[in-house]
């Protein structure tokens, strides 16, 4: 198992090198002159040149690249010109916020969509199958900012069940000591139930927004995968052996149907993590998506590079986790690895 993990990590090295090169080049060819932006509209050409020199932007590209790689190797992702903080610190503070939100959203989504998909497959053509189709289609066809605003309108403005959408915690609370960076978990570790409640009341609305959006791919994939497995020979054998329907569906069919569902989960997760900018904006969530967008708009290279790099590493780890999960679910995968 360890061998497999090490080998899988090894295959990720070339793609990471590629990401480093591409992020470097991409940010350099983007339109917009950083130095000019920071010097302000009234800056003299002299002042701009000065800033260029300070940032090393007057050097030739290969030299800039070498400097960039050297910095990376020492864990220095550069300074964000917008926040004035080291990019590494910014990402470390914001990535857990995004990850917590995305994971919770995905968890809620799985809790609904997987059972829905299974039921839709087992009772194909029944009302629950149609419900599954309607819910999934509706969820994916409404833009997240719309669902988000709708939920805020209903649950905050009309019903008052949720606090104002103002970030991870109400200002009267202070964040728990950082262990995992996830407020829900950290507050429990600290034994502070009230803080947990406060964090929960902030996170559940955006999480539900994300969940609604990601219902469709997971529910549809579960249904399709279950349908094909339920029609296979070994399910017939299980039924002919008199096994209970619950055993046939969950023990035999579902475990076999799991592989494509896990693949979809991985894809949805990595997609949401980077793409939930709109949800972060609507709920003033201090996440990594909105951070990257702001940096991009101001032609602030370092945070954009840091963001892409962090995402790439995360993606590699995620794929590794999925591969390991495959191996746990399907013994045939273990052999091939």
């Amino acid at each position: 198992m360890l061998k497999q993990i090490v080998r899988r990590l090894g295959t990720a090295v070339p793609s990471l090198i590629g990401v480093v090169i591409v992020t470097f080049l991409l940010t350099r060819v983007l339109p917009g002159d950083t130095a000019a932006y920071f010097a302000g509209p009234a800056a003299t050409p002299q002042a701009i040149a000065e800033i260029k020199t300070k940032l090393g932007l007057d050097q030739r590209l290969p030299v800039q690249f070498l400097a960039y790689v050297k910095d990376l190797a020492t864990g220095n992702l550069g300074m964000s010109l917008t926040t004035g903080q080291p990019v590494f610190e910014d990402i470390r503070a914001r990535l857990p916020a995004s990850a917590e939100l995305t994971l919770l959203g995905l968890l809620l989504s799985v809790a609904v969509s997987v059972p829905l998909g299974i039921l839709a497959a087992v009772r194909q053509g029944s009302w629950i199958d149609h419900l599954c189709r309607v819910v999934a289609t509706a969820g994916v066809s409404l833009p997240v900012f719309f669902t988000g605003l709708l939920l805020v309108y209903v649950f905050y403005y009309k019903l008052g069940w949720a606090p104002a959408p103002m970030g991870r915690l109400d200002f009267i609370y202070s964040a728990p000591d950082t262990v995992t960076g996830f407020y829900l978990i950290d507050s429990l570790i600290a034994g502070d139930v009230e803080l947990f409640r406060a964090a929960w009341s902030q996170i559940w609305l955006p999480a539900v927004t994300l969940a609604i959006f990601s219902l469709a791919p997971i529910a549809r994939m579960t249904r399709a995968s279950m349908l094909s497995v339920l029609a296979s020979d070994f399910v017939r054998t299980a039924r002919a052996s008199g096994l209970k329907p619950s055993k046939v569906v969950m023990g035999y069919a579902f475990r076999n149907a799991l592989l494509p569902v896990i693949t979809t989960l991985g894809m949805v997760f990595s997609f949401l993590l980077g793409a939930n900018v709109l949800v972060e904006k609507v709920f003033a969530w201090p996440g990594i998506g909105s951070y990257a967008i702001e940096a991009l708009i101001t032609s602030d290279y370092a945070p954009v590079q840091g963001f892409v790099l962090a995402m790439a590493i995360l993606y590699v780890l995620l794929n590794l986790a999925i591969d390991i999960l495959y191996g746990l679910v399907d013994p045939r995968v273990r052999i091939e690895a």
Partner: peptide, 18 residues
């Protein structure tokens, strides 16, 4: 399975692969 049972063609497919 207890009183009447069945065996199938393509035995490999008739067994749960995992």
């Amino acid at each position: 399975g207890r009183e009447m049972s069945m065996i199938f063609q393509n035995p490999r497919a008739a067994l749960n692969p995992i």
